[in-house]
Design a protein around this nucleic acid. Structure first.
Length: 275
DNA sequence: AGGAGGAGTGCTCTTACGTCA
DNA sequence: CCTGACGTAAGAGCACTCCTC
C-alpha cells in the first residue's frame, strides 16, 4: 500500500482526510468529520492504515450547483432547527454584516462585497461582479499573525478590537481567523500524514524482519539436536548468535553462557532472553 | 497555469429562551 | 409555582468551494 499524497489516500486512524476536491461528487448528505489533529499526537505503532473508500466522506455540493439535497439534510440536527435555515442564515449574516458596517466608523461604503477602505475607494469606478480581492498589508498580516499566536480564535470583543486596529471590518478579521485555522489544520494533517507514512514503513520493515527471523527459528527447530528436546521454559536461545542457554542454571554451569550483548534488538520486541 | 489566500455558502453543534403538560 | 421536554432562534465554527491576484 503506497501513499503518495494526501489526495491519494485517507487514513483510518481517527484521521479523516478529505480527498481531492476533483473526486466525483454524488450528493451525499453530509456528516461532521472528526477532528483530525486531536487524535494524532498519541498514536500507537500498531495502528492500521487504509484507503478511505469512506462513504461518510464529506461531499459538499458546490454553492452554485448545490442546494437541492442540502435542504433535506437539515432535518437531522438534534436540538437544532428542523427546517431549512438557509434563508434565516442569510438574513442573519446580512444583518450582522450591516451592524458591523455601522459599527465600524472607518467604513462608510454600503457595498457588502467591498473588503477594505482601499477597496471601497477603488470601487467607485465599479468592479466586476462586485468581488474584489483584498490584499492585507504586511503590518496587518503581522498583527493578525501575532494575534493568532496568542489565540487561534477570537471572542467578539477581541475581534472588534483587532478590526479597529487593523481598520478592517470584524467580519474580515473573523474570516481571516477561520481561514488561518483551516490552513493550519491542513498543514498539520499533512505533517501527520507524512509521519504516519514513515511509521507504517518502519512497521512494515519490522514485520518483514520478524517474519524472516521466525522462519529461521522454525528451520533451526526442525533440525534441533537432542538437548533442544528439553522443556521450552528451561532453554532459551539467542537468535543472533544462535546459542542455547538454560535460564535456570546458565549463570553457574551452562557451557553456553553468553556474555555478549545481543545485537538482536528492537524496541518493539523483547530483548533476547538468552542474552 | 497553478498556488495563495480572502470570501461565500451550507452545515452541525451549542446555548438561551419561550411554551406547554 | 416548579420542572422537564420540546421547539425555535441565534451564534460560532468548520468543510468545502469560488474567485481574484
Amino acid at each position: 500500500m503506497e501513499f503518495e499524497s494526501l489526495s491519494d489516500a485517507g487514513l483510518v486512524l481517527g484521521l479523516s482526510l478529505n480527498a481531492s476536491p476533483s473526486m466525483a461528487t454524488p450528493n451525499y448528505i453530509t456528516t461532521k468529520q472528526p477532528c483530525v489533529t486531536e487524535t494524532m499526537s498519541s498514536f500507537e505503532p500498531s495502528l492500521t492504515l487504509g484507503l478511505s473508500g469512506d462513504p461518510n466522506r464529506k461531499v459538499v455540493v458546490g454553492g452554485d450547483q448545490g442546494g437541492l439535497c442540502r435542504q433535506d439534510s437539515t432535518v437531522i440536527s438534534g436540538g437544532g432547527s428542523s427546517f431549512s435555515n438557509v434563508s434565516v442564515k442569510r438574513d442573519r449574516e446580512v444583518g450582522s454584516e450591516e451592524s458591523e458596517r455601522v459599527s465600524n466608523e472607518n467604513i462608510s461604503n454600503s457595498r457588502v462585497m467591498s473588503t477594505s477602505v482601499d477597496d471601497v475607494e477603488d470601487d467607485d469606478d465599479g468592479s466586476i461582479n462586485g468581488r474584489k480581492k483584498l490584499r492585507l498589508t504586511k503590518p496587518q498580516s503581522a498583527l493578525l499573525e501575532e494575534a493568532f499566536k496568542l489565540h487561534t480564535s477570537l471572542n467578539p470583543k477581541q475581534k472588534q478590537e483587532l478590526a479597529r486596529e487593523l481598520k478592517l471590518r470584524p467580519r474580515q478579521v473573523e474570516v481571516w481567523f477561520q481561514n488561518r485555522r483551516a490552513r493550519t489544520k491542513l498543514k498539520q494533517t499533512e505533517m501527520d500524514f507524512e509521519q504516519l507514512k514513515k511509521c507504517c514503513e518502519t512497521l512494515r520493515d519490522d514485520n518483514r524482519r520478524l517474519h524472516k527471523e521466525l522462519q529461521e527459528l522454525k528451520a533451526l527447530k526442525s533440525s534441533q539436536p537432542f538437548y533442544m528436546q528439553l522443556p521450552a521454559a528451561t532453554l532459551t536461545m539467542c537468535p543472533s548468535c544462535e546459542r542455547i542457554g538454560d535460564t535456570k542454571s546458565s549463570a553457574v554451569k551452562n557451557p553456553f553462557n553468553i556474555a555478549a550483548k545481543p545485537h538482536y534488538y528492537n524496541s518493539f520486541t523483547n530483548p533476547s532472553a538468552a542474552c
